[in-house]
Amino acid sequence: MVARSIPFIELYAGDHERTVEHLTTELGLSRVAEAAGRTSRAVLLQQGTLRLVVTSGDGTEDFLEAHGDGIADIALACSDVTGTRAAALAAGAADLGATGDAPVVSGFGAVRHTLVPESRAGGLPPGREWVPVADRQRPAARIRLLDHVAICVEGGSLERHVEFYAAFGLQRYSSEFVDVGDSSMDSVVVRSASGEVTFTLVAPGSTTGTGQLDAFLRRNDGPGVQHLALLVDDIVAAVTEAAARGVVFLQTPAPYYDALAARFPDIPEEIGRLRATNVLADRDEWGYLLQLFTTSPHPRNTLFYEFIQRHGARGFGSANIRALYEAVERDRPAVP
């Protein structure tokens, strides 16, 4: 009666061609299958175990009008679909019917969860007639899996969401509070026992309404997925190649690297290579990690991506949260 993995994530997009182009040509995912109707289009993309469904057309209009391009469904592969559905409904989820033979329940904001039996986690997403495709365009396979999903919710609602996801078997893993100027961010990480489902729940920590999370909630018309973190084995190569293909990454303050050599005298990556690619580094008691955010490729700036490389570290870059937060603050428009 618990969530074990994320078999796919569904992204609604207003400009289907441009979104698929970004995810394939720029981020490097490959087309696996397509499902097209008279008034709708869907394509399944994959690299490593990460699988994204990009959907446009019929059935997406209301979501897109309210929220812009964004994640509409985080599917969960469950050890007991019937039991997980019952637990979710008891915790306050709404019954949204079914997609094919897979039950669907509400999650946060307008995002839903399709519940898939664990035995079918590697199959095609339910509810469509998929046609397999052979993608001739296959960039270097840098993305290994989905490391975590960052979810932005309203201030003061973190504990309610933590309790809600306990019904899916996700338990509190860590928490963090960052105060930057007149805005702040509060966060709690919940994770499945399998380690394959990790949600980083973030919320405004102040009442000024001026921070980047407040701006996201306004642009998105409520809670939603802020970013997807993609695990890679060589972040310098991944960032270099993605940037050459057109992906735009956030810029890191130059003084950050002046202190990095003192903080990390023993990391094998040369500080100069990290500086050249704007990659940040952090460590915990288990090891260290490297990470970097993209800017949003979507019109309403509602979703972006993170590359992350782990060398034993189990955390999420707590020492980098301030630097990343400040980088996003500089990148976002002055007027939401």
Rank of each mutant, 00 (worst) to 15 (best):
R51F: 08
A334I: 04
F199Y: 13
T210P: 03
P255K: 10
V131R: 15
A243N: 11
Y288W: 14
E61M: 11
R31V: 15
E329D: 13
R38Y: 11
V202N: 04
N278E: 10
A243W: 01
A238Y: 05
G209Q: 01
R218V: 10
D15R: 06
A134C: 09
I151C: 05
S119C: 06
L23A: 01
G195K: 09
R218E: 11
F264D: 02
L217H: 10
A75P: 07
Y305T: 00
H16Y: 14
D214L: 02
E269M: 12
F108E: 02
V225G: 03
L231T: 07
R85Y: 04
D135K: 08
R283G: 13
T84I: 09
L303M: 03
F164P: 02
P333G: 05
R218A: 11
V104L: 09
H113Q: 08
R330T: 08
G70V: 03
A254T: 09
A13E: 04
F108C: 03
Q46M: 09
V180I: 13
A110Y: 01
A66Q: 14
H67Q: 12
Q47W: 04
F164M: 06
R51I: 00
A134E: 14
T19Y: 06
D266M: 07
R112A: 12
V225A: 02
A66C: 09
R112G: 01
A77W: 08
G123V: 00
E118V: 15
R218H: 11
R314Q: 15
L260E: 07
I235C: 03
H22S: 08
Q212A: 02
T302D: 02
T24S: 10
E10Q: 14
A262V: 04
L145M: 13
Q171D: 15
A3W: 06
E159Q: 14
P139Q: 12
T200Y: 07
R300D: 06
P336R: 14
A167D: 03
R322D: 07
V188S: 08
E17V: 13
R283M: 03
D282N: 06
V178C: 10
E270Q: 15
V116M: 05
P253G: 02
F199K: 02
R38G: 14
E10M: 05
F168M: 09
A35V: 06
G122N: 14
F249G: 01
D258K: 10
V236N: 07
A91I: 07
Q226P: 03
F108D: 07
E163G: 13
A238E: 00
A87G: 06
E34T: 15
V225I: 11
S194A: 04
W286G: 14
P125Y: 04
R283Q: 13
G156W: 03
S175R: 15
L44R: 09
H298V: 15
W130Q: 10
T198E: 11
R138G: 11
A72R: 15
F216M: 04
V239S: 01
G109K: 11
I6W: 07
V133N: 12
E21P: 00
R51H: 10
V133A: 11
C78A: 14
A237D: 15
A327K: 05
V225E: 04
V43S: 10
N278P: 09
Q309K: 03
P265A: 03
Q47N: 11
A75Q: 05
S187T: 06
F316M: 08
G287K: 12
L50F: 10
D233N: 11
A242Q: 10
H311N: 09
P255W: 04
S106K: 01
